[in-house]
Amino acid sequence: MMLEVKNVSVAYGRIEIVKDVSFSVAPGDWLMLVGPNGAGKSTLLNAIARLAPSTGQITLDRRPIEDLKPAERATKMGLLRQDNPVGYHFSIEEIAELGLYAKRAGWLSTKQRDDDKVEQALRMVGLWEMRRQSALTLSGGELQRAFLAQLFVQDPPLLLLDEPTSHLDFNYQIQTLELLDRWRQEEGRAIVSVMHDLSLARKFGSHALLLNKGVAHGFGPLEEILDDQHLNDVYGLDVRRFMKTLLEQWQ
């Protein structure tokens, strides 16, 4: 197991956002966190990334996550947040380059290989041509891709993605998810992502964790969890019929 989450709860003040959730992620998995608004998906992801205080146990490669130093943690997992406000006129390239930080802290890098890595990541997300442009002039989707490039430069074996396609147009949604799918197929890699679009979750995921109001309503292989019964319970509507009607409107 790469990531094990046991009885994790997250509370802001007296309000409990995530309640006693457990699941695990093995190499090769793509776990989709699915559920309605306010289900606690992003909060759970932030708790794993140590951006939100939590109780319970989270282990990464069998080590409690709080025992890992920040740089070591960053070589094992990386997070793409939904919104990435940028402070000053940093260029896309400067943002991507920061992905090297954790590895540089370990003195294990050469300048040339690093430059290649940054170029490769920026080409992967389609921002190489505009790498000198200031982040403050970018659209939400371009900014999201810039931080995705940073994550590819950081290159940890476990990616935590909070709505990785939320700001992207349809074309880039598919491109990005296919890119991530290819990335995941290399040995020892896994992804946990929050996903609103159930059809995309179904197409790319291997496992699913269904959340509602902070409580897990099922965790396991995707087909078992994203079935009609579970979905209708959680969303309170006939999801499959709705999807079908949508499709019929196209035909």
């Binding site: 951006l51 130093k69 920040p70 740089a71 947040r81 940093f90 930080y101 954790a102």
Partner: peptide, 17 residues
């Protein structure tokens, strides 16, 4: 630089914030 871009980003790339 990492802080100037954003503190939580600094945290995720491994800065001891």
């Amino acid at each position: 630089n990492a802080f100037a871009i954003g503190e939580s980003n600094a945290e995720t790339i491994g800065v001891n914030v």
